[in-house]
Simulated scan of single mutants.
Amino acid sequence: MNDRRGALQEYLLRTQPRTVDRGRMVVVERELTRVVRAGVTGAVVEFGCYRGGMTAWMRAVLDALEADAPVHAYDSFRGLPAVGRHDSDYLAEGEFAASVGDVLRLHEQFGLRRPHLHAGLFAHTLPEQLPGRIAFAYVDGDRYESTLECLRAVLPRLAPGAILVFDDYADPAASLPGRAVAQPKAPGVMKACEDVFGTPLAVTSVCEDPTWALGVYRHAVPPTVAAAMSAGPETAR
């Protein structure tokens, strides 16, 4: 199978630098590879896909692993919703507006299978349009309410051993070992996670860049799957 990761990565670094960078791609590839190699079955989903950079990256990773999991992407395609009381005003309402066509053209350009796209507010699409079993999710809602909607919808559908990755989760410059501090540009993301999980320890801060950190949540893992996952994947590109 043709491995499109190298060409796709370089293209995304040039064309979508605000939402897809090398550090994010490393983390997503590493965690998605863990799920596939551990034999966790289910769909791969993305909440907040913008122009489809990470959507395409996940498809390219799956293809390189010869994994046939479907990819579902959810976005209003009208940009971010209004700022809420737990959010920063760093990102304005309407920012990151894109179109379904942007996502499809990117996949066609690199010969990638089209994702299942769900256009509309999370509150309208997630209750009825989420797959019944989810193996991996990339949560890029930016806002408190958006992240909360995603968590409430996705958690009951997670397969044992599934992984959630949260964009803009923590600020590595202010965080200490064992104590992550919210990313000031998107503080609602960590707040939503803490409100749902009841403890900050449920999500691990993972840093591949000095200015931001992703959050990683690992769903309840049976012993046999845990043993397979502990070996870890090969070093990501």
Rank of each mutant, 00 (worst) to 15 (best):
A7Q: 08
L8P: 13
Q9N: 06
Q9Y: 02
E10L: 11
E10R: 04
E10H: 07
L12D: 02
D21N: 15
R22M: 05
R22A: 13
V27M: 10
R30M: 13
G39Q: 03
T41R: 06
A43M: 09
V45M: 12
E46H: 05
F47D: 11
F47A: 13
Y50K: 10
A64P: 01
A73D: 06
A73N: 04
D75H: 08
F77C: 05
R78S: 14
A82F: 05
H86G: 03
A92N: 07
A92G: 08
G94T: 08
F96I: 02
A97P: 04
A98G: 09
V100H: 15
V100E: 15
G101W: 04
D102Y: 15
Q109E: 11
H116Q: 13
L117G: 03
L121K: 08
P127V: 10
L130P: 15
V139C: 07
E145T: 10
E149S: 09
C150R: 04
A153G: 15
L164C: 06
V165D: 14
D168G: 11
Y169T: 05
P172W: 09
P172F: 06
A174M: 06
V181E: 15
P187V: 11
M190W: 01
C193G: 01
G198T: 07
T204Q: 06
S205Q: 14
S205C: 05
A220E: 07
A220K: 13
P222V: 09
A226F: 10
A228F: 06
S230Y: 06
A231S: 09
P233Q: 03
